[in-house]
Design a protein around this nucleic acid. Structure first.
Lengths: 330, 330
DNA sequence: CCTGTCCAATACTTTGTATTTATTGGGTGA
DNA sequence: TCACCCAATAAATACAAAGTATTGGACAGG
């Protein structure tokens, strides 16, 4: 059924619709305009559908069916690509299991989608995610006990390849009712006596030193501070009034807390994938490439960026209430 | 990118692997055996993969890669079919509005994203979501008054196609201050006199019977029980001290309530999309496909089933909390 | 050991069609 | 009107798929 439709047709028509013209599409596809003309006609006749109309000025405008075609053809071609990639990887014996790690400082959501991304490439491969301290994870990457890890920078080790995934602004986390919360942005000097909560130095020494450097450059001297061994603890300490903390922008926050940018500086939290330079498992670069691609295409507004969903602290109860029993075991 | 691979190749190789022989496959495909021979070789050379080996008696046996190929090629061809069907239907204007239904037992969040996903395929089509009882919805699906519905299993009807979306563990919902709440997990025997709140039997008879069966197998006999006509009512009854209820794991809970798993059993709540086998609305299979894909790339089941995170009844703060500072500007 | 039979693989030819080149026709704007 | 931008058409070409005939290999039975 529908065996007259080959991938070629989807490629061609997709290019025609996207480029809004046969000529431009032909150039992109490295073929001739008349070829597209006849192939496009054949496909549309076979399916008895019309994918585009011509405007007065000779351009191509997708019909409603054409708009749907763009979405569907993209999925179809993408799927072919994934299928073949998967088959090649399976052939190479890279199926067994892939071990991925992340540190507490990394956005859990990012790590989770990074892990699950592997399934879109290799549905049959098992993924084993692990969590651990930075130092420990680096050790395991070097020992090939994990294939790749998502960590925060900086990291300098000649044996390790670093591929940056995301860069988030570093903002101040403070109580909503703090006087300084009325300002739209804080000055570095505002931190001087208020910044009193840092991530535990031993958990990520490089980041700690770098942060102290940056603060010093901005004229902020941090003397005594509370140590948090987990990001959630930082929020708790801020809430309890022990001072400000620095968190990644966009972080879901406790009800009583808010964040403010720091004026005049450009401090960021950089999240990256690391893997062993030599013993790199071959799927990892592919995985990263695909992840970055999804990230860049997803941030365009097809799916609203999950943002504040949890920010309010309360769950949308009414519509996601408990569901009763239904069925049972395998 | 992989443009040498056409649908033809997938069809051919699929037939070869399934029929376990070139000759038989050639017959099925109405083509010649040598043709398959060369096409199969080309594809495998291009992808540098080997999909089958020959046994002693001259037959064809799929390699591990070949086994994966069968699955993947089937999906690919099925998707082509769905895409073209959908396009034809759209062209004919059969998709002006799509009517989707869900039952109270279904996660509202899931249903909502399922509905909104239809926009990515057909932006102009209106989506009309409806809510109703299971029996009523099944009736409407059969009568083509709704195009598809998200319901909980079990469901047996030869005229209806069932596609599972999610499987959640069934856990006990009880008051935080109940003595048994101190245990990490409950024994089935703990339910004996405590389980006293069930979803209304008439609202979903199949699930009710199945649940009683399961309970009986575990040695639990439920005699008198309160009936809740809506999941939110179940929580209220538990809160008021009328007994335990069974809810889907991960359910947002009332402050005073908590949940505990049941040791030794593997009971689940299965959520599925259903639609009419014959009168299948053309966009629905694609919708489901896309939904599943998004589901697998966003929230994965790879992760340890979010155990304790939700158990307290509070939001899963621990794993989606803020991350501290690390590095700095360019 | 030979031989008949099942296969798939190979060699070669034929057919089909995708593609190219060259051209026409149809709008638009100067 | 002309020139210029398109896509559509026609005819020629090229290339790949499908067909035909054959070979080669692996058994099983005599």
């Amino acid at each position: 059924m529908h065996d007259w439709a080959e991938f070629r047709h989807f490629r061609y028509l997709l290019a025609i619709l996207e480029k809004q013209g046969f000529r431009a599409a032909a150039e992109e596809l490295h073929t001739s305009q008349p070829n597209l003309s006849v192939q496009a006609r054949r496909f549309q006749e076979n399916a008895s559908i019309k994918l585009f109309r011509k405007t007065r000025d000779g351009r191509i405008r997708a019909t409603q069916t054409g708009e749907a075609f763009i979405q569907l053809a993209q999925s179809l071609l993408e799927m072919r690509h994934e299928v073949i990639d998967a088959l090649i990887a399976i052939e190479r014996g890279e199926i067994s299991t892939i071990r991925l790690g992340s540190t507490p400082l990394v956005d859990g959501e990012l790590f989770r989608s990074f892990c699950s991304m592997h399934r879109t490439i290799l549905p049959m491969a098992a993924v084993r995610p692990t969590h651990g301290d930075r130092a420990q994870l680096v050790e395991e990457v070097l020992a090939s006990q994990v294939d790749a890890a998502v960590v925060t920078l900086p990291l300098k080790d000649p044996r390790i390849h670093v591929e940056e995934l995301r860069r988030d602004r570093l903002v101040v986390c403070l109580r909503k009712d703090h006087p300084l919360a009325s300002k739209a942005a804080l000055q570095p000097s505002d931190l001087q006596d208020n910044l009193a909560i840092l991530y535990h130095p031993q958990r990520h020494p490089d980041a700690h030193h770098r942060l102290l450097e940056l603060l010093a450059e901005a004229g902020v001297l941090v003397e005594a501070y509370s140590r948090a061994s987990h990001p959630s603890e930082m929020q708790m300490l801020v809430r309890e009034g022990y001072g400000f903390a620095l968190v990644r922008e966009g972080t879901p926050l406790d009800d009583a807390l808010t964040t403010r940018p720091i004026a005049g500086v450009d401090w960021t939290v950089d999240t990256a994938v690391i893997y062993h330079r030599q013993w790199r498992p071959k799927t990892v670069p592919l995985l990263i490439r695909r992840f970055k691609k999804l990230q860049s295409t997803q941030s365009s507004e097809i799916f609203p960026r999950r943002q504040e969903a949890f920010l309010g602290g309360s769950i949308p109860v009414l519509d996601s209430l408990p569901n009763g029993p239904s069925k049972a075991p395998v």
